[in-house]
């Protein structure tokens, strides 16, 4: 299955919040929808789920117009909410049955997901009696209870401790392995980086980065090197680089104990290494820069901080 979002435009009143968003998500892969607060992630997801209608644009599944109501979609909204006064299993069975699942099967699914998310002991408890983290897990279980073919999760990791975040990660990996389309938004870059094949970074309602994470990292890391020194402090090393090597490299970023350098056009790594070896700098670390997703995110969506 290939879900394609093409040129979504959405305004609230006079404010246009999405200016033509396009991306695609494939079965068996996870798409991370990233962006700062107010970038348009939740609006995009709500349009996908038909909570809002786009002003223009198109969503297709395998080339045919996509309507959320025609497919089994596991949706975890940003605004969490179930019935606080009802027992966990009752509301999960209700939601599964609303998606057309028979009662017996719904009960089986409830048992499976409560067990899988390690909250079986709360099956007959009222939701309001559970801790916030466990309520979040119940909400996730309710999202997945109908074995959806497409999973759309808005900030699924928020409110989960590291152990539970790992549990959710494992669950999502299973879904990816089962060939489902998994789309989720998150701020937690290391988690996204671990199992996302594709990412879309939104900024002020525009897609600023989109594609395979591997390719994006490669593209962003291209012509960038890291350097640290044994004999110079960071400020001293900066001076040396700026005074003696500005013709071959430019300082891109200063990290805690190394510099990210940008190679000048037509300058090879070997030439830079040669110059360094002939200089007063005693090299501690020198190599190809591998950017983290956080680096890319800050570079692409962190404009206000620059």
């Amino acid at each position: 299955m290939l879900l394609e979002v093409k040129d979504l435009v959405k305004s609230f009143g006079d404010t246009e919040v999405l200016h033509g968003i396009s991306f695609s998500a494939e079965s068996g892969t996870a798409l991370g929808l990233l962006g700062r607060n107010g970038a348009g992630k939740t609006t995009t997801i709500r349009i996908l789920m038909d909570v809002f209608r786009a002003d223009s644009g198109e969503i297709t599944l395998d080339g045919n117009p996509f309507s959320a109501g025609d497919h089994w979609i596991g949706y975890l909204p940003e605004e969490r909410g179930l019935y606080p006064k009802k027992k966990v299993c009752e509301q999960m069975v209700y939601l599964a049955r609303l998606r057309g699942i028979h009662k017996t099967k719904a009960m089986e699914n409830v048992d499976y997901w409560l067990d899988r998310l390690e909250i079986s002991e709360y099956k007959n408890e009222k939701l309001e009696k559970l801790s916030k983290g466990n309520q979040q897990k119940v909400q996730l279980a309710a999202t997945l209870v109908a074995n959806p073919e497409i999973v759309i999760l808005d900030e699924p990791f928020s409110g989960l401790d590291p152990v539970n975040a790992q549990l959710l990660k494992d669950v999502l990996n299973e879904m990816i392995a089962e060939g489902k389309i998994v789309i989720f938004s998150s701020h937690q870059m290391p988690l996204v980086e671990e199992f996302c094949d594709d990412i879309v970074i939104l900024n002020h309602g525009d897609v600023v980065v989109s594609g395979r994470l591997k390719d994006i990292k490669k593209e962003y890391g291209e012509n960038r090197l890291i350097l640290s020194s044994d004999n110079y402090s960071m400020p001293e090393l900066r001076k040396v680089l700026e005074s003696q090597m500005s013709d071959i490299v430019k300082i891109d970023k200063e990290k805690k104990n190394f510099f990210v350098l940008e190679q000048k056009p037509k300058v090879t790594r070997e030439r830079i290494l040669g110059r360094l070896l002939n200089s007063s700098v005693k090299i501690e670390k020198f190599g190809v820069f591998e950017p983290s997703l956080s680096d890319i995110f800050v570079a692409k969506a962190g404009d206000e901080y620059e």
Partner: peptide, 13 residues
């Protein structure tokens, strides 16, 4: 008021 409406309207008619 309990915010479950978004789940419900995206689940059924």
């Amino acid at each position: 008021s309990n915010r479950s409406v978004e789940v419900l309207v995206t689940t059924t008619n």
